[in-house]
Design a protein around this nucleic acid. Structure first.
Lengths: 236, 236
DNA sequence: TGCGAATTATGAATCAGATTCAAAAAATGA
DNA sequence: TCATTTTTTGAATCTGATTCATAATTCGCA
């Protein structure tokens, strides 16, 4: 009926309010500082009301991550529509990913944090499901790029499934970000933090996969140009 | 003087006892279940005594991770002494790494957890330092392998420092483990969890770096054989 | 060996903050 | 309008980390 529909909408809006506010609070004070009572008060609701949406603090964090994943997906969807080679699409994924993280430091921290035993296990099963569900179309989409490459002959599968192949760039991307994010790690080892470096590594991997057309990894200028071009296409 | 030396030793032993016990407790009940009071009692000490060693629960976790890093280093040191090509050494790193994680699930979880803002920021500066210090020789060692490869001509640097190049396999390794570890992620996407898959990805990357001698990534049997051979050399 | 000072250990008390739940308020609907 | 159901409230509860006054131990010295 109409009434209950409106009610549901209001409830959803309230949930978004909680999430928006939590996001702001995390952005300004960090994850640890986020307190349930403070958050509720900041939204002009009682603590108990907050718990009607999220079964626990961890549940809230996972919900936040799930929402980010949705934006994430949207960004990736742009990519498949791009008028570029499959290899460039895959590369664009890593460019977009990096940009997304740069503009969403909260997401970067959260995505590291929520998969931690301490958080993951304390979130409700349904929120966890939600995160994984959001990931699914992303994975499908990346797989699609690989499949396209296999189909048009620019990548030889060698008996691997598209997913198995997609894992490689995914892992490299993930690992690069983990290293970069890990406080003090690269600094401690005096690794110059050069944006392009990571892109070069990705091209090395894609070359190693035999993904055509190969890119000359010694030509940083060209890599830079390509990144710039993709950035424009993605308007970032 | 002799007396204070013994005292220091006893103190160190007690610290190890705390860490050993914490490790067991984590192994059997998980990180979240680790409670300071329980741990102290399990070691027959008062809670306050535990706090004389670790400034906080997080500090204890970081200390534990630092200890793991030391074992880690030891394992890697074996590798540089191996009578194999530099490429095989680098590959051996990923084999050893994977084995280490398989046999130390606690380490795997911890190393993900401690670098989380919530933990890292709450550990004492000196513990954090300790973790990074342990990492340093590991990094140096891996760099050494890259440098050796550059020197003997099996790898072309193209103006990159050894460290910059070393980051690539490091990131891939790291990322693979993160993906694998992340509860439910690969399952959710129906990715078959095949040990060798990861090794193939590493060879793709090393090939893409132009690291000689190149490996035929379509020949899984050969990769498998090489892993087996390295496992024997490392006796794992 | 005995004694006071200095150091260390103890664990009950404190504190922070997440979570709950009985009571109050609001919505529903007859 | 009023009884019933649903939702909101926030003070009380609970958990577990951390502290700190007190007790125990060790030390240096006569």
């Amino acid at each position: 009926m109409g009434t209950s529909e409106r009610k549901q909408r209001e409830r959803d809006e309230r949930e978004q309010l909680f999430l928006d506010t939590a996001e702001q609070m995390i952005a300004s004070d960090g994850i640890i500082q986020l307190q349930m009572a403070k958050l509720a008060k900041a939204c002009d609701y009682a603590t108990g009301t907050l718990y009607q949406h999220f079964t626990s603090r961890e549940d809230l964090l996972v919900a936040l991550a799930a929402r980010h994943s949705a934006q994430h997906l949207q960004m990736f969807q742009q990519i498949i529509a791009l008028p570029v080679s499959s290899r460039d699409k895959m590369f664009a994924i890593s460019v977009a990913e990096r940009d997304f993280r740069k503009h969403n430091p909260t997401h970067a921290k959260l995505s590291q944090y929520i998969f931690t035993e301490a958080v993951w296990e304390n979130a409700s099963a349904c929120r966890r499901e939600q995160v994984l569900q959001c990931g699914q179309p992303i994975a499908a989409l990346v797989c699609g790029i690989v499949q396209q490459a296999i189909d048009d002959g620019s990548l030889v599968a060698n008996g691997c499934s598209a997913m198995e192949l997609a894992i490689a760039p995914w892992a490299l991307c993930q690992g690069s970000h983990t290293l970069e994010q890990t406080s003090g790690l690269l600094e401690a080892f005096a690794v110059p933090r050069h944006d392009m470096q990571q892109y070069r590594h990705m091209h090395m991997l894609l070359n190693g996969m035999g993904w055509q057309p190969l890119v000359d990894v010694s030509d940083m200028a060209q890599i830079k140009t390509r990144v710039a071009a993709l950035s424009v296409l993605l308007n970032i």
